[in-house]
Design a protein around this nucleic acid. Sequence first.
DNA 1: ATCGTTCGTGAGAGCGCTCTCATGGGCGCC
DNA 2: GGCGCCCATGAGAGCGCTCTCACGAACGAT
Lengths: 343, 343
Amino acid sequence: MTDAHSQIRTAPTLEAVAARAAVSRATASRVLRGAANVSSRARAAVEAAAEELSYTPNRAARSLVTGRSESVAFYVDESEDRLFSDPYFLGVLRGTQTAIAQAGMQLVFTVASTPQDHERFLRYAAGRHIDGVLLLSLHGQDQLPQQLERLGVPTVLSGRPLADGSELCFVDADNTAGGAIATRHLLDIGRSVVATITGPLDMGAGQDRLAGYLDTFAERGLPVRQELVSEGTFTVSSGYDSMLRLLETEPSIDAVFAASDLTALGAMRAIEVSGRRVLDDVAVVGFDDISAAETARPALTTVRQPIAEIGAKMADLLVRRISGEEPTRQTILPVELILRDTA
Amino acid sequence: MTDAHSQIRTAPTLEAVAARAAVSRATASRVLRGAANVSSRARAAVEAAAEELSYTPNRAARSLVTGRSESVAFYVDESEDRLFSDPYFLGVLRGTQTAIAQAGMQLVFTVASTPQDHERFLRYAAGRHIDGVLLLSLHGQDQLPQQLERLGVPTVLSGRPLADGSELCFVDADNTAGGAIATRHLLDIGRSVVATITGPLDMGAGQDRLAGYLDTFAERGLPVRQELVSEGTFTVSSGYDSMLRLLETEPSIDAVFAASDLTALGAMRAIEVSGRRVLDDVAVVGFDDISAAETARPALTTVRQPIAEIGAKMADLLVRRISGEEPTRQTILPVELILRDTA
DNA sequence: ATCGTTCGTGAGAGCGCTCTCATGGGCGCC
DNA sequence: GGCGCCCATGAGAGCGCTCTCACGAACGAT
């Protein structure tokens, strides 16, 4: 199997590079990995040989001996429908992809919906196919990150985990501050009946944005009225439905803080359908600053969270943990109110 | 390194499964790979042992010997900005992800923007890190797919390649038919000055949708007026700019076929900005049927292409080619006019 | 009863790499 | 000038798996 013909199809091995550079495989390996303790003469020879043969190390072979795969999973615990319709995930994916590629690693893309997927992923991770996991959209008391960590697979979450996840590694936007900024703004422009459509309350982001809303009422000594709070799911349709219900219960609502832009967009539609006008009758503030917020008419005032940056930060944290560092485990990124036409 | 402690952290090997089942490694391997020629007794024993140890084969080791990595690249030749703002890619990714996962393979997600990325990817592919490539958004006369095939890496494109790509493997929607359906519809509802905003004309999709428009004019014996054709880039902003220009040049335009929904959305905005009303003054038909088409106001009439299905089909084709089959190389999927409020 | 055949099985090589360990040459030091 | 030390290097094992090949048992055919 070493006839001239098959050589064409066969990628050059380290052996070939070493031979061409007239050094041993070990030395060639050292050079290519960037290890110290190599003479500059040997280094130059190996680098030249590798270049000439356009050598690429065989990942599988390396992986087999190092026990590392140089790839991380991007795991979204969400139904496909949600995943592919919510720009948030895509923004995080984007930030992540760039950072991971820069580190010379692969991003293995995975979506899970069923509990079986969950189980299968755990086994997969246990098989050391990946060096780490970027976990998105964790719900409730899900123990997946804990299980992964117990397996020795470093995991970084997007979003604060609930309750017992205190020593998990995560990156999040300052959701509480964001909720407060939005609510304060609505109060500051003179609105008095300020409702909110929350995110799912089994997620940190949902809870914290609501907390910001509630805090603001407390801060100003205003009473919170339960009929002004409606739980949503971050989706357009939940925004629409919630808003319709809110307006029916309390027709005097003159402002609403929606916990996501998608929700806000749905709420805007509901406001119009109910015969009211956005801003004139009901001011709206969203959360996220997805691109649709800017192009919507009227353009949506919203709390911007640095989505791509969250992804990048997550990737960065994960890469560092994989290479043995012990970085600060939790990062909260600042948010910012973007004033447009709805509030 | 075989003390009780490290065993906890070490995934069980095939050796361990074989030992537990009291067979040789070879037999265990045969069972786990689903090969024939194994006694049912041995098969049962191995399966039980694997289950008990919750064994997962080590991909790297397998990959090293088979020369296959069980993973395929999802490669988008587009800037990140475009990629993450165009639902088309995401839809394809979605269809792809499901099908690839089903085949037990990994999806390695890659975005390329610069020519260096291109080069780097070729080397990467040459290193046999992936078994095949799903290539999206090929522009112009780019030779990447040919180069990949020459390297022996099966490649499947989304969208017809231009000119010399005749024997490449691709999946596409019936763009020409779609363009024709849209144009015919606009004519059929009584519009007489029908403009079009095309996609990029260095792509099959851009060319073919325009061809459908032109064909329809020829079919009806109508003259094509150059000032009614404006080249766009599938983006919102190009739709906006093109529409503004078209209306300035020819104020009597009463309909427009936009080669993508994003373009159509931009065009609708331009129509309103110019003081006209969508439908009443200018009817609009888009292409794609992304979710924003349905939620836009007025809701966009558009040509639906089965985006996720394109992804699934691509993955299916690729998987079959990887496993040595020689499937029909080119698939054209049907499109369908979705009537809503803009035409 | 004998032969050939088939079929299940196991031994063992080897995929391409990293890493440990032993070796030898060059250097500084007294 | 001799001793010890360090640094660059190479030999070789071995990561976990697949696959080839040879072997023996079981079977049908003559």
